[in-house]
Computed example of a mutant assay.
Amino acid sequence: MLVTSGLAYMASSLSLVSCMIGASVLLRGWGRAMPVTNEQVAGHVFLQQMYSDSYFPDHVVDKGSAILMRLCERIEAEQPSDLDALYALTHAATEEFNSLDAEFAAAGSEIETVAREVIAENFWFVASAYGFTDADAEKLIATRDW
């Protein structure tokens, strides 16, 4: 019983959990929350327009919101010094969205025109919230295949 509960605890602490209240993220393997310190981000609901549209299943949109929150966490942790460093982080997050496309399809949805615009706007929001107001919106998501 102790081994089983210990394994369950390990599995739960290794999984990434996003919490929009307080904009905190449970770090993989650490078992403690690391709040995002940027006030604009902490008060922002990512992908709000997609949550408002029943075409997009909330459980998949939640995963997209978690991707954006992890991007913010990485920006705060790595503190990119220029646009190239920021683009490297946003491209990695965009690749995660590329993987979500199949999950949207499995749920009877897709990353279509509205979703593309909403996702792009949220990437722009993140870049500008961290002071990269000169970032090119298309370059932020240049690795997208949706």
Rank of each mutant, 00 (worst) to 15 (best):
I21R: 13
A23R: 14
L140H: 02
S15R: 10
E117K: 12
G64T: 07
I111G: 01
Q79N: 00
A42F: 08
L26W: 11
Q48D: 14
N98S: 13
W146L: 11
A142K: 15
E76H: 07
L68N: 03
K63V: 02
S99M: 15
V126H: 00
I67K: 07
A23Q: 15
A92D: 04
G29H: 01
V41K: 02
Y130L: 13
S15E: 08
I21A: 14
M69H: 09
K63A: 11
A127R: 04
L86F: 07
W30N: 04
F132H: 14
D62G: 08
G108E: 05
K139T: 08
W124S: 00
Q40S: 07
Y51W: 02
T133V: 15
S52R: 10
Y51Q: 07
E73R: 01
G22K: 10
A142P: 13
G22P: 13
E95V: 11
A129T: 12
L2S: 08
S128G: 05
I119Y: 01
G131L: 13
L71E: 09
S65N: 06
Y55T: 10
D136P: 11
T4A: 12
D62Q: 11
G64L: 12
A142M: 14
A107E: 01
L27M: 07
A107W: 06
I111M: 03
S12W: 13
H44P: 01
E73V: 06
D82R: 09
S12D: 12
T94Y: 10
S128C: 14
D58F: 01
E112T: 04
L83E: 00
E117C: 00
G131E: 11
A23M: 15
E121D: 09
R70H: 05
A129F: 14
G64P: 10
S24M: 12
F132G: 13
N98M: 11
G131T: 13
A137Y: 15
K139M: 15
A77Q: 06
W146C: 08
T94A: 12
G64Q: 08
M50T: 02
V41S: 00
G131W: 11
M50F: 06
L71K: 08
R74P: 00
K139G: 04
A92Y: 01
D145G: 13
Q79L: 03
R116T: 01
A93E: 09
E103N: 14
A88V: 00
A66Y: 03
V41C: 03
R32E: 06
D53H: 08
F125E: 00
S12E: 11
S81I: 03
P80V: 01
V126Q: 00
E39H: 05
R28T: 02
H91N: 09
K139C: 09
R28H: 01
A33H: 07
M34A: 11
V118N: 01
M20D: 07
I67Y: 04
D145T: 15
M69N: 05
E95A: 12
L83R: 10
S109L: 04
E96G: 10
S65G: 10
I75L: 02
E138I: 11
S54A: 13
A106P: 00
V17E: 02
D62F: 13
A106N: 03
E96I: 08
A129G: 15
W124N: 00
